[in-house]
């Protein structure tokens, strides 16, 4: 466990808490893509099946349970409790465009052709593209609430810190998880455009709005 990994996990947790707080305090899911949140719930569910088969550490187990709980609570807020505030009109990304290639790729390129391992691979590939419905929604409406941009910032920061974690682990432990690294790089690239807007607009006190 290194500092990049810990900070990455904290950023990830913070992102999910920020999103839940936004929904809870404003009693509204306006501007949030329910489709991205369903994909994240699917990511955690398929990745953390090893909770039942493999013990790694208390930290690992507790964090997995918290991530699952946050993720399912968010989906419940959007499609249950506050569904009348959910902007389904603008959440129009076609999920099959992501799910079909991701499913196909996880069968083709994995470490072991076993159900658990294919599901783990599926979750890694899916996570790398799961934010696209949210970014699509922002580009469609042309704006995002500032708190939503903080959520996206911490989610992007988490992935960036994981890249540093992998570089660290490669040098100190000779650990190299090719599937996670390649997907992680792809995922981080999707945030670059957003990071630019976040720094040039949101951090200067302006609302994120696209021309």
């Amino acid at each position: 466990m290194n500092v990049f990994r810990i900070l990455g996990d904290v950023s990830h947790l913070l992102a999910m808490i920020i999103l839940l707080l936004k929904i809870w305090r404003s009693k509204s899911c306006a501007g949030i893509s329910g489709k991205s949140q369903i994909l994240f719930a699917l990511v955690f569910t398929t990745r953390y099946l090893d909770l039942l088969t493999n013990f790694i550490s208390i930290y690992n187990t507790v964090m997995k349970i918290i991530f699952l709980a946050c993720s399912y609570t968010t989906v419940y807020m959007i499609y249950g409790k506050y569904r009348n505030t959910f902007d389904s009109e603008n959440d129009s990304f076609r999920l099959e465009f992501l799910l079909v290639p991701v499913t196909g790729l996880s069968f083709l390129e994995n470490y072991n052709f076993t159900p658990l391992e294919i599901l783990w691979t599926f979750s890694i590939y899916l996570e790398s593209v799961a934010i696209l419905p949210q970014l699509f929604m922002i580009s469609k409406t042309g704006e995002a609430e500032t708190i939503t941009t903080h959520y996206l910032f911490f989610l992007g920061l988490y992935r960036t810190l994981y890249l540093a974690n992998w570089i660290w682990r490669y040098h100190t432990e000779s650990f190299y998880d090719q599937i996670a690294v390649v997907s992680g790089v792809v995922q981080t690239i999707f945030y670059c455009d957003f990071f630019y807007l976040y720094v040039t607009k949101v951090l200067k006190g302006k609302k994120l709005s696209l021309p």
Partner: peptide, 10 residues
Amino acid sequence: SMDSTKHDEL
């Protein structure tokens, strides 16, 4: 090296 049966990251 990668022990694929033990994914220790979140």
